[in-house]
Simulated assay, not measured.
Amino acid sequence: MNYSAKVDRIYTDGACSGNPGPGGWGTVAYYVNGAVHEMGGGDAQTTNNRMEMQAAIAALKFLQDFDQQDPIALYTDSEYVKNGITKWIKGWKQKGWKTSTGKPVLNQDLWEILDELNSKQVEWRYVRGHTGDIGNERCDTIARAFSLGKTPTLKTFTDQVQEPEVIMTDASLPAPVDLSDLPREGRVESLRHLVETLQMADEIASKAYLITSSELADLIDVNASAVTSRGDNWVWRNWVVSRVRREGNQILWQLERVD
């Protein structure tokens, strides 16, 4: 393997059938000269978040073999992974791997590996999934194949690969409403409603309740289409929102407190 070649960017993705259930991960490294190197694997019983993390771990291990000083962009469609490694992990470690509610941090074993492998050279970036980004789509294809027990053909170094066009999209939910123009009584009432909403979300998460897309949309005060368009895993305030399964014509979601 030509370790003298420079890596430009790496994409990672995970998939899981059932969540928990059979899962897979995919990682694709793109070189400055257009060469590509693909990696992937699977697990018979896992979760989507763990597969997202395994893909990122594979990317960081891959980079250890390169003597490269230039920054490398690492794209993930998991806000759980990006926020966890760039924001939340410092607080988790300070609290002895506990969340703000005192509960053990889920997937601590993989977070510790990611933390050890991470470096300032890596620029963690979020890319919205299933929006046509070639790198993300290829990782998704690899991950889903492994989750189904298949072994896809993975590309190794080639000099005849067209560089993908990166399509970045805005994955944010509608911005909070500016309440500064309301009278004080109105602002207090809005805050009271917000606290009740957050308490409700905490109860849903702590008791592992599954809620439908429309119920989730009502909880976070957005249109139902804004829920389903965000992908299988995303972050809302202090929670990771994960798609669990479909029952009939309903998609069921689960909240996980992570801060």
Rank of each mutant, 00 (worst) to 15 (best):
Trp239Cys: 04
Val166Leu: 14
Asp43Trp: 14
Trp88Leu: 04
Lys120Ala: 10
Pro22Gln: 05
Ala175Arg: 15
Gln160Met: 12
Asp8Ile: 03
Val258Glu: 06
Thr156Asn: 10
Glu165Asn: 15
His37Ala: 11
Met53Pro: 00
Tyr30Ser: 11
Leu255Gly: 06
Ala73Trp: 13
Arg125Val: 06
Leu182Phe: 15
Ile211Ala: 01
Ala58Trp: 03
Val258Asp: 05
Val28Cys: 11
Gln250Phe: 12
Leu106Tyr: 04
Cys139Asn: 04
Arg243Met: 12
Ile134Lys: 08
Thr156Asp: 14
Leu154Val: 03
Gly96Glu: 08
Tyr30His: 15
Asp67Gln: 14
Arg243Ala: 07
Thr151Val: 09
Glu165Cys: 13
Lys98Glu: 08
Ser172Ala: 14
Ala175Glu: 15
Leu173Cys: 03
Asp221Met: 11
Thr27Ser: 14
Lys207Cys: 05
Ile85Asn: 04
Asn19Val: 12
Trp88Asn: 05
Cys139Trp: 00
Val161Trp: 15
Gly132Pro: 00
Val127Phe: 01
Val166Trp: 13
Phe66Glu: 00
Tyr31Arg: 04
Lys120Val: 03
Val81Gly: 12
Thr197Pro: 03
Lys155Trp: 04
Cys139Lys: 01
Trp236Lys: 02
Gln54Ala: 13
Asn233Phe: 00
Glu215Ile: 02
Thr86Leu: 10
Asn2Gln: 08
Gly14Arg: 09
Glu165Arg: 15
Glu112Tyr: 01
Thr101Lys: 13
Leu173Asp: 11
Gly186Pro: 05
Gly26Arg: 05
Trp239Ala: 00
Glu112Phe: 02
Asp67Met: 12
Thr27Lys: 12
Gly21His: 00
Ile10Trp: 02
Ala201Glu: 05
Ser4Val: 05
Thr228Gly: 01
Met51Asp: 10
Tyr209Asn: 01
Lys87Val: 13
Asn19Gly: 09
Lys87Ala: 12
Ser229Gly: 03
Ile142Pro: 04
Trp92Phe: 05
Leu179Arg: 15
His130Tyr: 00
Glu247Ala: 11
Phe62Cys: 01
Val222Lys: 02
Val161Ile: 11
Leu114His: 08
Pro152Asn: 10
Gly91Glu: 08
Asp77Cys: 04
Pro104Ile: 08
Leu117Thr: 03
Ser180Leu: 08
Arg138Cys: 01
Gly24Trp: 11
Asn49Gly: 06
Lys87Phe: 10
Trp253Met: 07
Gly231Val: 06
Leu117Tyr: 05
Asp178Pro: 08
Met200Lys: 15
Arg125Trp: 02
Ile85Met: 11
Leu60Glu: 00
Leu154Pro: 05
Tyr126Asn: 09
Asp221Lys: 14
Asp115Trp: 12
Trp253His: 01
Asn107Met: 03
Arg187Met: 15
Arg187Thr: 10
Gly149Arg: 00
Asp202Ser: 14
Asp13Tyr: 01
Arg125Ala: 03
Thr47Asp: 14
Trp234Gly: 03
Gln64Leu: 06
Ser225Thr: 13
Ala44Tyr: 15
Trp97Arg: 02
